[in-house]
C-alpha cells in the first residue's frame, strides 16, 4: 500500500508542480501572484474539450490546441489586466486585485459558455493506467509528471542559455534598467505570459481529463500557489520540488489521519514552514515588487 500511496502522492504532486511552474514564471518576472492563472486553466480545459468531443481530435492535437489557447489567452490577460498597471508603476495590490478579478471573470464566462452541465473528455488514451511495482499509475498523471519535468528543463535552458532568457532574467531583476539597456520589456513580458499560459493549457486539459470539466476547475491554482511558496517563490526548480512535496505530504496525511484532519495539519505545516524557512525549499527569497 505504501508504494501505491507514494505513487498517488507523486501523481497529485505532478499536478501541483505543473501549476506551480506556470505560477512561478510570472512571479519570477513581475513579482506578483497571478491568480488569473486559474482562469486560464479553466478556459483551456474547455477549449480542449471542444476539439476533442466535437471535432473528434486525438490526444496530441487536442493538447496542442489547449497549449496554444492557453498561451494566447495569457498574453491577452497580460495586455488587458496588467500592462497598464505596469506602465503606470502601480503597486502590487493592483496586480493582485486585477489577477483575482480576471480569474473570476474567466470562470464566470465559462459558466455562461459551458452552461450548467458537467462535461467529461472522451476516452483519448489507449490505457487509463499502468501497473508499476504492483501499484497502478494513471497515464494522465504520468503525462503530467513528464510535462512538469520537461517544462522545467526547457525553461531552465531558455532562461540560462538563450539571449531571450537572459533578457527575461534582466527584467526579473529590474524592469526599468533592463528597458534602458535595450530590452523590449513589453514583448519579453508577453513571451513570459505566453509560456506560462502554455503550461496552464497543458494543466487545464490534463486536469479536465482526470477531474471532469466544470467552471471552478481552475481553483486548484491555490494549491499550486502553496506549492510555489513551499518551493521558493520565483524558483522554477523549487516549484517542481514544492509541488511534489505538497502532493506526497497531502496524500500521506490523508492516508494516516484522514481527509478531515489532513488539510488542517497541512496548513499548519505550511505556516510552520513559512516561519522557519520563508525562502522556501529552493532557498530563493523573492519579494513582491512589480
Amino acid at each position: 500500500m505504501l508504494v501505491q500511496q507514494l505513487i498517488n502522492g507523486l501523481s497529485l504532486g505532478a499536478v501541483y508542480a505543473l501549476i506551480a511552474v506556470g505560477f512561478g514564471m510570472i512571479f519570477n518576472v513581475l513579482k506578483f501572484s497571478n491568480f488569473a492563472h486559474g482562469g486560464v486553466i479553466t478556459v483551456t480545459a474547455y477549449a480542449g474539450y471542444y476539439v476533442a468531443a466535437n471535432l473528434g481530435w486525438s490526444f496530441l492535437p487536442t493538447l496542442a490546441v489547449a497549449i496554444l489557447v492557453g498561451g494566447l489567452l495569457a498574453m491577452l490577460v497580460e495586455l488587458v489586466g496588467f500592462r497598464l498597471i505596469r506602465r503606470r508603476g502601480g503597486s502590487v495590490i493592483f496586480y493582485f486585485v486585477s489577477s483575482v478579478t480576471i480569474g473570476m471573470l474567466l470562470e464566470n464566462l465559462m459558466v455562461i459558455a459551458g452552461g450548467p452541465t458537467f462535461y467529461a473528455y472522451p476516452d483519448m488514451l489507449a490505457k487509463a493506467s499502468y501497473p508499476v511495482l504492483g501499484a497502478s499509475v494513471s497515464t494522465v498523471n504520468l503525462v503530467m509528471l513528464a510535462a512538469s519535468t520537461l517544462a522545467l528543463v526547457t525553461l531552465t535552458w531558455v532562461l540560462y542559455r538563450t539571449r531571450t532568457g537572459v533578457a527575461i532574467r534582466a527584467i526579473s531583476a529590474d524592469t526599468v534598467t533592463a528597458g534602458l539597456m535595450g530590452a523590449n520589456v513589453d514583448t519579453l513580458i508577453g513571451v513570459t505570459f505566453f509560456v506560462s499560459g502554455c503550461l496552464a493549457g497543458m494543466t487545464g486539459m490534463l486536469l479536465g481529463m482526470t477531474q471532469t470539466l466544470f467552471p471552478q476547475l481552475g481553483r486548484v491554482v491555490v494549491k499550486g500557489f502553496i506549492a510555489a511558496v513551499i518551493g521558493g517563490l520565483g524558483s522554477l526548480g523549487g516549484a517542481v520540488i514544492g509541488g511534489i512535496f505538497l502532493g506526497v505530504v497531502e496524500v500521506m496525511l490523508t492516508a494516516t489521519i484522514g481527509s478531515g484532519w489532513a488539510p488542517v495539519l497541512l496548513f499548519l505545516i505550511l505556516l510552520s514552514f513559512l516561519a522557519v524557512r520563508p525562502q522556501g525549499i529552493a532557498g530563493v527569497i523573492a519579494q513582491e515588487k512589480a
Binding site: Q5, N8, S11, V15, L207, R219, V251, A255, S259, G260
Partner: peptide, 19 residues
C-alpha cells in the same frame, strides 16, 4: 473513508479501502 468538497483526487482513500 471520507472526502471533502474540494477534493479532486480520491486515490489515497480508495487505496486504503481496496486494501
Amino acid at each position: 473513508e471520507t472526502c471533502q468538497w474540494e477534493d479532486t483526487d480520491y486515490k489515497t482513500q480508495l487505496t486504503k479501502i481496496l486494501r
